[in-house]
Write a protein that binds this DNA or RNA. Structure first.
Lengths: 349, 349
DNA sequence: GTGAAAGCGCTAACAG
DNA sequence: CTGTTAGCGCTTTCAC
């Protein structure tokens, strides 16, 4: 029967001081003599002591844990954010947990979540493009725990770090227009995340500025996954008058579209131009490179963590809403519209 | 100044019973009168009471939380496992946290991890193909916390749930041999995960069984990412005598290879056959479909959770090592070797 | 069946 | 500078 956990009491005993002194020493409290600190540190090391975070947080003290709440880990972007946050957190010497709730927060059950491990974390970062109104309301009401929303696209009084989707999308589509494209398709992602609608707004406004009509048959609904892009691409190319350019609400779908184009034996960008959104790693690696928009993920994650830490440390938050511009990355997948209007008909392929 | 947390004391007060009775009632303890249980339940509901997991675990009780330790969330496979575990856990009405440690567990610092939140979770699932020997030893020594390794590929006395990589790879390469291929390339993943070496063993054994030589120039090192597959593919195709088939240690790299093949203007599978490993969603969606091997991720995750729950509940673990066969999924990306040996030379492309 | 007391491991608050 | 006291919210004795 081994003693399984070594507690602060053990350390104090070994160091020959009181528990309190040990506590202070390990927390680098100024009001502990250097000698004592050293003794305690050694004792702790010898015993392989690890502070019991649980006990610490019971006292309402800092836990040095930041939580990230995520709904869909399989999403490349969510992943990228989670990873970026993970990196950013490291700088503050905090630990990080990811709580993955597929549906939890959206369908009422989330009620419990915010309190579930109440006290476990010093602060919470939500990486959910979507949040149920109820849950959001709860979150806004609960001021006892610092919270930052990352990549959240709707209105809220909570601090938000996000990218400018709309003007990014506007830029992309305008670029296509300048290249001479007139029939520009849009492949949307799932509508409930604020992301896709915003990008669609940019698409619409760019068309409008250019005086181009909005063709319903050129707007396809995807779900942010590559497969849906593939299907949308196939459908678009099967039109009697297919588009000469496709703007997809994210890179995965854009790559699906590229696959669809190649299946048809068409070339990119000579026959069809394609633009995505997100600048996932593959975008730069393929031939031709995918023209796309980059959200400064790392910078955003850093900003989110920084804002959160500020609040955790009771410093005044800097801003309620930090918006990063999306950077337009021009690669080879978008080119001039084929001057040859010889496409005419290619039925039955 | 609102009272922010509602505690068991509040519930007990409202229900007009002692704290203890309330505790018992909420835990469905038999030794609480039905009437009391009902009263307490109502009071709890009215107050919106959520048990403080922290306090509960301080007493060493169950926390109903399972932890998943992961090193690289950006890996599709790790992700798939994490998601699958997440699903599996849900059935047991447990909560789930993912702890993402980029390097923590591998570089000594991990010492602390196992104890870091000692008591936070009832059990831990490690989804790390790799684990430092030191850390593994610690883990094996610490019997106080139930642990299951998922997708771990090296020797250990801890319970492991894994897929059979080697014979899967053997099958794939043998299949290529049967299709008449003689120059079969292998693109490996990062060597430190047990995965890739095992798949390589299958590759080697299949070649050996077929009496084919092992050509060093046909073995390329990747890192499991699509980009590395693309690069490996380019390099292989640039050989004076390129392979007629490529077996990649995972699907992402296989897809990178496909891109490389298409860049060259070659066709799949007429000119080059390609086989991957993992059966990620895209594998079945592209044209032609990617022939690959599927790890039964969901089943594996379920088995892992089940084993873990068994141990958490102090039931005898079923087995120390549960191995799932990899399923060979034949799609269109691997075909007969070109009978035409007219490839001869294609230098300088 | 129920309740009172003790204490999990730690740290704020106050003494010394 | 250091130690003592108290208590976080809950559950585990052990009485009643």
């Amino acid at each position: 029967m081994k003693k399984t956990t070594v507690t602060l009491v053990d350390v104090a005993k070994l160091a020959g001081v009181s528990v309190m002194t040990a506590s202070r020493a390990l927390n680098d409290d100024e009001s502990a003599s250097k000698k004592a600190r050293e003794k305690v540190r050694l004792a702790a090391q010898e015993l392989g002591y690890t502070p019991n975070t649980l006990a610490r947080m019971m006292k309402g003290g800092r836990t040095n844990v930041i939580g990230v709440i995520v709904n869909d880990l399989s999403s490349v972007v969510v992943n990228a954010f989670a990873t970026a946050v993970s990196d950013a957190v490291r700088k503050y010497d905090m630990d990080l947990f990811i709580y993955s709730s597929q549906t939890g927060l959206e369908h009422g059950k989330g009620q419990q979540m915010s309190q579930l491990l109440h006290g476990l974390w010093d602060g919470l970062i939500y990486v959910l493009p979507r949040l149920s109104p109820d849950y959001l309301k709860q979150l806004e009401a609960d001021t006892s725990h610092p919270v930052v929303l990352l990549n959240y696209c709707r209105e809220t009084s909570l601090p938000v770090v996000r990218a400018d989707n709309q003007s990014g999308a506007h830029d992309a589509v305008s670029h296509l227009v300048e290249l001479g494209h007139r029939r520009i398709a849009f492949v949307s992602g799932t509508a409930h995340t604020g992301q896709s609608p915003e990008r669609e707004l940019g698409y619409r406004s760019a068309l409008e500025s250019a005086g181009l009509p909005l063709a319903p048959e050129l707007m396809r609904e995807g779900d942010f996954n590559e497969i849906s892009g593939l299907e949308a691409g196939r459908a678009l190319l099967a039109l009697s008058e297919p588009p000469t350019a496709i703007f997809a609400a994210n890179d995965s779908m854009a790559m699906g579209c590229m696959t669809a184009v190649r299946e048809k034996g068409l070339r990119i960008p000579e026959d069809i131009s394609i633009i995505g959104f997100d600048d996932i790693p593959m975008a730069g690696a393929i031939q031709p490179g995918l023209t796309t928009l980059r959200q400064p993920v790392a910078a955003m994650a850093q900003a989110a963590v920084q804002e959160l830490m500020r609040r955790i440390q009771n410093q005044p938050g800097r801003r309620q809403r930090i918006e990063f511009p999306s950077e337009f990355i021009i690669r080879g997948s978008a080119g001039p519209a084929a001057g040859k209007r010889t496409r005419a008909r290619r039925a039955g392929v």
